[in-house]
């Protein structure tokens, strides 16, 4: 059974429910955050204004610098509560600008707090171009030797283009509540039908896209409880040992081979439960109720 959790449960500050600004405040060393393009100078989206949709002064993303465990970092935090964290032209430009700054400034890392369903469809091509520029900028930043760490634990998860961006990062820290995938559940259901994927079956959605599944299948480096302090500690720990190797094709080939083998191994499976059983989890049905520590221990015990 799980370890006693009473104290943690009573004292947690939910990362999932927090706003982007409150996440930033809880993640960084106290008082160290400095925002670039703060509210008084940034502009809301002109595309939304044309459509008569209310904009946000920060266009749904906060960028800036700060200290994390005493190390200098640059930081991006998407606000899932504004248009589902969707990436529009200004939103994207702020992210790209920050990543390019990282290449110049060389901080210990860029921390990318992802909370987004992907492209902001209202902005059409401008949003799509923004996403591809972010992908390029993440790879450029890593190639310059600066790690980019994605944190995925917000209510919008990391879907669509932002799902790809997250996987392009050096490492992902996820909570159980976080979700990471390419097409969102509603998109799959709309395109392929409810028989293919029932997006209202919340349990299934989490078993297929949620943090525990991503941790068991190795898509995220760390699994944390839904607690801002846990995200902070895990990111600090990750920073301590993280180096960004020079890009090369052999590492990419190894990774591609791993992914190909994984696809073949789990081919035809439709539910996390089947995948976990195939990985050797003795009681896959219990995974959903395990706390973080129990799941991490269970993964260690799995056959290689």
């Amino acid at each position: 059974m799980n370890a006693p959790v009473h104290t943690q449960l009573a004292l947690r500050h939910s990362y999932f429910e927090a706003s982007a600004r409150s996440r930033v405040a809880q993640l960084l060393d106290a008082g160290s955050f400095r925002e670039f393009l703060p509210p008084e100078v940034s502009q809301p989206s002109p595309h939304l204004a044309v459509l008569g949709i209310p904009g946000a002064f920060d266009d749904g993303v906060i960028v800036g610098s700060g200290q994390l465990g005493g190390k200098p970092v640059l930081l991006i935090a998407q606000e899932g509560q504004f248009m589902g964290g969707a990436v529009g032209e200004i939103h994207g430009a702020k992210i790209v600008g920050l990543l390019r700054r990282a290449i110049v400034e060389r901080p210990a890392a860029v921390v990318f707090m992802v909370d987004s369903g992907g492209v902001r469809l209202h902005e059409a091509n401008a949003g799509l171009i923004a996403i591809s520029e972010i992908m390029r900028a993440v790879l450029d930043t890593r190639a310059a030797g600066v790690p980019v760490i994605a944190l995925v634990g917000g209510s919008c998860g990391a879907f669509g283009g932002m799902g790809i961006v997250s996987r392009l990062c050096s490492a992902i820290v996820m909570s159980e509540e976080g979700r990471l995938a390419l097409s969102g559940p509603e998109v799959i259901e709309t395109v392929a039908g409810v028989e293919e994927f029932d997006s209202k079956d919340r349990a299934l959605v989490w078993r297929v896209t949620g943090g525990k599944h991503r941790y068991l299948t190795g898509d995220c480096a760390e699994l944390v409880e839904d607690d801002a302090a846990s995200f902070r500690q895990s990111t600090i720990d990750l920073l301590a040992g993280l180096t960004e190797p020079a890009p090369g094709s052999s590492a990419l080939r190894t990774e591609q081979k791993r992914l190909t083998q994984r696809r073949e191994r789990f081919a035809g499976m439709r539910d996390g439960l089947e995948v976990w059983a195939a990985m050797g989890m003795a009681r896959p049905a219990e995974v959903s109720l395990m706390d973080r520590d129990s799941l991490v221990a269970a993964k260690k015990g799995l056959p290689a």
């Binding site: 059974m1 799980n2 959790v5 009473h6 449960l9 009573a10 947690r12 500050h13 939910s14 429910e17 927090a18 109720l289 706390d291």
Partner: peptide, 19 residues
């Protein structure tokens, strides 16, 4: 705000109850 709630989901309640 909701951070003051000792449980924020039904799953939290299950965990408080030790299953």
């Amino acid at each position: 705000n909701r951070d003051l709630l000792a449980a924020r989901s039904v799953k939290d309640l299950v965990r408080w109850s030790g299953g």
